[in-house]
């Protein structure tokens, strides 16, 4: 699903943010990306989502080589994945329902289909009763669940999360992790960047650990996918 081959990333004239990163996350797997802040976790995710492009090496996502992709093809690439942000990135000028429905509107679904799928996603994260409220009135944990509902509403093949539990207490963080595991259980490939080791150590998933831009632990392997 995600394949990194000798990937380096450098911003301008500074030293490498990522150096010679190799790994392969197979379809249907779930893995954690760990490391201190500034180790390059966010940069790695940006390379997958087409926000940034590699300085050297190749990133392949779902069979598409991102160094060869055209700018006009990036939106279609992003529609294949769901992204969960640390600070939720919700839009506070519209309701919870409209926030979650946004990816479906972008994909051009018919309204009845949008309604059905949005309700299903909200139900999944336990916020169906709050569909009409403005997300600004929700707690941090609830807002993050809205963010997750929005990420999964288009039934993506790949779910990416950047510090999804960053501002949450351990109990809420566990709830969020449970949600991700449930999505993985139905076949979604999941990659979660986090620095919260106490949260993920009890869970038995492979880890990728970055330190100063180098992958110092790779429990996924890096052989070329077939």
């Amino acid at each position: 699903m995600i394949y990194f081959e000798h990937v380096s990333k450098r911003y301008g004239q500074q030293k490498d943010t990522l150096t010679d990163v190799n790994f392969h996350l197979p379809m249907g797997e779930m893995a954690f990306l760990t490391g201190h802040s500034g180790a390059g976790k966010s940069t790695l995710l940006k390379l997958i989502t087409g926000i940034e492009f590699t300085s050297r090496g190749q990133v392949t996502v779902n069979g598409a080589n991102l160094s060869r992709i055209k700018t006009s093809q990036v939106p279609a690439l992003r529609r294949q994945m769901g992204i969960v942000f640390q600070n939720h990135q919700l839009l506070y000028d519209r309701s919870v329902f409209d926030n979650v429905a946004l990816p479906l509107k972008i994909a051009g679904y018919h309204f009845s289909e949008i309604e059905r799928r949005t309700r299903a996603a909200l139900d999944k994260v336990g916020l169906l009763r709050k569909e009409k409220v403005n997300p600004v009135t929700l707690s941090g944990g609830e807002q993050q669940r809205v963010g997750i509902a929005r990420a999964v509403v288009n039934r993506p093949l790949l779910l990416l999360a950047d510090e999804p539990t960053g501002n949450l207490d351990p109990e809420l963080s566990n709830e969020i992790m449970t949600l991700f595991r449930q999505f993985n259980a139905v076949g979604v490939t999941v990659l979660i960047a986090t620095h919260d080791l106490s949260l993920i150590e009890p869970l038995n998933y492979p880890q990728l650990t970055l330190e100063q831009g180098r992958l110092i632990r790779n429990e996924l392997g890096s052989e070329r996918p077939q």
Binding site: T49, I51, S72, P75, A76, L77, R78, R79, I83, F85, Q89, L90, L91, L102, P103, I106, A107, R150, A151
Partner: peptide, 8 residues
């Protein structure tokens, strides 16, 4: 945000 979730 809208661009990140795949808007053209």
């Amino acid at each position: 945000v809208i661009k990140l979730i795949g808007a053209s």
